[in-house]
């Protein structure tokens, strides 16, 4: 039987990692190495950082954001995770026949506004229309170019045993907001997506922590669980986080309990996890808390010697459990 793509291959979890390694990486330049970073440093163009991302979120407009804001923030954030100052953006749109022009206007207004907010310039683009049913509303792709702020870029491979794990706010807001916007659940509390640019937060954090900031990673699809597993596997460390220290959002927690979702696996669009040398943890945390996107920032855990690749959670009861990378399709078209 011919092997086919399933939604699980897009879930941000184990199957997606497997597929990328097996089918996509072989075509990539070998200097990329095995680490799957949020953005690439370019050999021969030492300060330039490049990334690309596609956005297929359904619905295109949701509480706390829309496709346009997401398409700018997502790419800006991927650049920021390598310590780059985002500078230029391209935008490609694939629009389904029959889509209302007003939706396109909404998306473009958001793109423009978010570009201004982040100081990034939209400099080139592409526009395609496909027949009805060949797409769904608007799909977007943005490519971002940024410039490294310092010589040593944070990397998922640089995490070291003893590093402290910092998180800038409560988990799961984007995923729950999208689910609610789809009308697939009735929630008492309104949850807004955390969709936000993180480049300013990263700037503040790097200023405070300098070279001691080893790893920055944004826990989007697959949530914190996938992000920490990627870090632990790539850097060859274990990571333990403590539930008691997590920033809280009761609305999201209630919704997750109701739906049986693990908020560690739910998508975020305005969160970052930082692994920093212990001596800079306090100043970095303080810098994060001084920033709008980091008011609830907290030290949630620590990187350990091993076993390499293992992520565990210390529960509020004091017990320990594995934090696994999500498997299968959690929520298709979450971003």
């Amino acid at each position: 039987m011919a092997e086919r793509i399933t939604l699980a291959h897009g879930g941000g979890g184990v199957q997606m990692q497997e597929l990328i390694r097996r089918e996509l990486l072989p075509a990539c330049d070998e200097t990329l190495g095995r680490a799957l970073e949020d953005a690439a440093l370019l050999p021969g163009a030492e300060r330039i950082v490049l990334t690309t991302d596609s956005y297929v979120v359904r619905p295109a407009v949701f509480p706390g954001g829309d496709l346009g804001r997401l398409a700018v923030c997502g790419t800006v954030n991927d650049l920021a995770m390598r310590g780059a100052q985002p500078a230029y953006l391209s935008l490609g749109l694939i629009v389904e026949e029959g889509t209302e022009i007003e939706l396109l206007r909404t998306v473009m207004r958001s793109v423009q506004k978010t570009c201004v907010e982040t100081g990034v310039k939209l400099v080139t683009g592409d526009f395609k229309v496909v027949e009805k049913h060949s797409g769904d509303g608007i799909f977007a792709n943005t490519t971002g170019v940024g410039f490294l702020r310092s010589r040593s870029a944070p990397s998922v491979s640089r995490a070291r045993p003893g590093d402290k794990v910092l998180l800038n706010g409560p988990l799961g807001q984007h995923g729950v907001a999208i689910l609610a916007a789809r009308g697939e659940l009735t929630l008492q509390a309104t949850v807004e997506s955390d969709c936000a640019p993180l480049s300013d937060l990263v700037e503040a954090l790097l200023e405070a922590g300098g070279d001691g900031v080893h790893t920055l990673h944004d826990p989007t699809r697959g949530g914190l669980a996938a992000a920490l597993n990627e870090i632990a596997q790539t850097a060859g460390v274990a990571v333990e986080v403590s539930e008691r220290n997590f920033p809280r959002d009761p609305g999201v927690e209630g919704a997750c309990d109701l739906l049986g979702l693990d908020r560690l696996q739910v998508a975020n669009e305005g969160k970052l996890v930082a692994l920093v040398a212990p001596e800079v943890a306090e100043p970095v945390l303080e810098a994060m808390r001084g920033h709008a996107s980091g008011r609830q920032a907290a030290l949630i855990g620590e990187a350990l010697e091993g076993p390499a690749g293992r992520v565990t959670l210390r529960t509020v009861l004091g017990t320990r459990r594995i934090v696994d990378s999500p498997s299968g399709e959690l929520l298709p078209r979450i971003c």
């Binding site: 699980a8 184990v14 293992r310 594995i322």
Partner: peptide, 27 residues
């Protein structure tokens, strides 16, 4: 048998005993 390549339902159903052990108890 893993959640990605399950031999039976206990590993892949969200209420399965093997899925619970795999997700949480493989310490």
């Amino acid at each position: 048998c893993t959640p990605e390549h399950p031999l039976g339902p206990c590993m892949v159903s969200s209420e399965g005993a093997c899925a619970a052990s795999y997700r949480y108890e493989r310490i």
